[in-house]
């Protein structure tokens, strides 16, 4: 299993209700069902991924995150997860608030735009950075709201969101001394565990 998911699953209680926003092919929820007997619900809009979820026995609801989560009751899930999707939504701040309304246990992962390679590319060549975590051209990227670890820290501070854990990992989802020293410079992927 991907190391970032390995990190995330320690924050998920066995037998709890987990909402995965942008659940992809449902592999992570299928894993949580098997290992932790969670009651799963995934949201997804990609039709092929939705079919993969059905085939994997994962509950999947076809729903666009940009159209809101008002159909979910407050405090109706034990955990809400948003993995590698924050940067693709129209209003990340509203989505974060909605996550906190639905659950007290929230997890977000996103690619850190302030990684030194990205900085170097922008500074030296002057191109929009591309990397293995950001493989798209500027014109066809689904990532419309890039953010950095510092940005997300600031959002949490402004919105009085309590960060329970913050971990940064590299592309292999491993952490290192440098990353822990300067997460916003060396971290490729950020993992936040937060509540209010």
């Amino acid at each position: 299993m991907r190391a970032d998911l390995e990190i995330i699953q320690q924050w998920i209680e066995p037998g709890s209700r987990v909402l995965d926003l942008g659940c992809g092919d449902g592999a992570f929820l299928a894993h949580l069902k098997k290992e932790k007997q969670v009651l799963d619900c995934g949201l997804e809009i990609d039709t092929e991924n939705i079919n993969r979820c059905l085939r994997a026995g994962v509950n999947v609801v076809e729903q666009d995150l940009n159209k809101g989560l008002s159909n979910f009751e407050s405090n109706s899930f034990d955990t809400v997860l948003l993995a590698q999707t924050l940067q693709t939504v129209e209003r990340p701040d509203i989505l974060v608030e909605e996550m906190l309304r639905i659950s007290r246990n929230c997890i977000i992962t996103f690619p850190n735009f302030a990684h030194w390679r990205h900085r170097l590319k922008l500074l030296s060549i002057g191109n929009m950075p591309q990397s293995s975590s950001l493989p798209f051209e500027w014109y066809d990227t689904p990532n419309i709201h890039h953010c950095t670890i510092r940005d997300f820290d600031n959002l949490c501070r402004d919105r009085k969101i309590k960060i329970l854990h913050r971990t940064v990992v590299d592309f292999n989802h491993r952490s290192s001394f440098l990353m822990n020293l300067h997460p916003n410079l060396f971290g490729i992927n950020a993992i936040y565990h937060f509540t209010r």
């Binding site: 999947v60 609801v61 009751e73």
Partner: peptide, 19 residues
């Protein structure tokens, strides 16, 4: 159909929905 789905979610049932 989404009305049905939302009521199932509210009842904390296991549901999949496709449009």
């Amino acid at each position: 159909s989404r009305e049905i789905v939302n009521n199932l979610l509210k009842a904390e049932k296991q549901v999949s929905y496709l449009e």
